[in-house]
Amino acid sequence: MSTTNQNKQTFSREPIKQVEGVAAVIDIENIDTDQIIPAEYLKITNKDGLGEHLFSNWRYFGNSESDRQVNPEFVLNKPETKTARILVAGDNLGCGSSREHAPWALLDFGIQVVVSSSIADIFKNNSVKNGLLPIVVNEDEHQYLLTQNAKQISVDIEKQTISTAEKSFEFQIEPFARFCFLNGMDQLDFLFSQEQQITEFEAQQTVYA
């Protein structure tokens, strides 16, 4: 089997250093990716138009796209938070299905940062790769941020701070993810830079088949 590949380093994205905007709060624990984007909207072969269906079970009344009506009480439908760029959610955000449609839908809606006291692994991984910043804060900070619905929040990725008009906290972010955000690097470029090591690894490996 030939392992030569013409794949080249050709990726880059917009560097993201800061995000500022209105916060929307959904104070519910264990929001799963089925809620962020239900299976009904996974039948696509591209990434287009998912923002319209973001949180559709909660955002709309009715059980199908044809008979649905906007739920005016849902935070992302309210005038003061429908342009939110930062989502603050209850503990264990993004559990469940690995569907990358979840970060795609959030980004398409306009959300650029998600904040919680813990964020599920696959969702966190998927978010980073698309330029959606997942921020995990401690319990006290989380409780405070859950009170900041419709307030202005700014996030500085370089300094690793998240700030409101009153307070500022530092947050931890995996160094490689931070580097990718700040430099607009796609993680695939990093893998391509390992081409030689990959080929060497394959050559020495025992495979049973």
Binding site: E100, P103, N125, K129, Q187, L188, F192, E195, I198
Partner: peptide
Amino acid sequence: IGTSEVGYTFATQC
């Protein structure tokens, strides 16, 4: 994994 990593695996097997 998510779809980005499906792409990474296609391209680099890593």
